[in-house]
Amino acid sequence: MPTRGTHQGIQNAAAPSQEHAAAGAAAGFSTRRTLPLLVEVRRQLTRRRTQLTLGFLVLLPFLLVGAFKLGSGPSGRGTPGLVDVATAGAANFTLFTLFVATGFLLIVVFALFAGDTVASEASWSSLRYLLAAPIPRAHLLSRKLVVALLFSLFALVLLPVVAYLAGGVFFGWAPIRTPLGTTLPTGEALVRLAIIVGYLALTLVFVSALAFVLSVWTDAPLGAVGGAVLLVIVSNILDAVTALGDWRNVLPTHYSYAWTDVLSPDISWDQMAQGVLWSLGYSLVLLTLAWWHFDRKDIVS
């Protein structure tokens, strides 16, 4: 028997209250309290794509372990690279995992979390209800961006942690051995790994900002994520054209591998500092654009 609604509750409802909060709002309403972070986290957490992404990041180190175990061992030709010392120990394995993930995987992850967040609300038609709650537009954007960045950061930290544990179980806990032939004690190695993860976080913020602004501009989640990834690929392609000379420093992905400077006996900070500044600069411009556009936009989704 199909259920039917009743209206008993309405009958007993009290008359509308005469007390109002500031600016004529309903009692108990405060702009600042709208869309708490935990609520937004819960809204995004049970999504299939969140779970799949995090699951894949946990799986990847084990895939690599399997690949290394299946393979025949390092080629030993020429000077060793990160791939040749990857099986030397947990820290080396983590380094290698970060090295292969930097080019594409982490970019997709960051773009996914940031590009999907506003555009998917638009595609579900729930954006208009959030805005009419009322949640101020700038407030909505900032909360969504913060939660997207939190998820991305969590994914970014999850990968090396799992890689370290997997590497430790399968390859041992030997101290880190760099391709330069130098060996660093474990404490120092962990500090350096933390620096690498921090640097990656700061430079990938640009990808998040790019995907976020595309998400705000178009209402298509796929368009935002795909567009951000595409633009990053174009930047990488241009970076490979050495004829551009110093112009390549302007490209946002030029410094994406600068974290390898952390592996030298003396860390040279300048490339990484430039990378961080460029990333934050681009992010500032893009996010300002996103805020400006969203503030003025007519929401038709």
Partner: peptide, 9 residues
């Protein structure tokens, strides 16, 4: 230093 292109010295 470690090359950022291919991870070699």
């Amino acid at each position: 230093a470690v090359s950022s292109a291919n991870g070699r010295a």
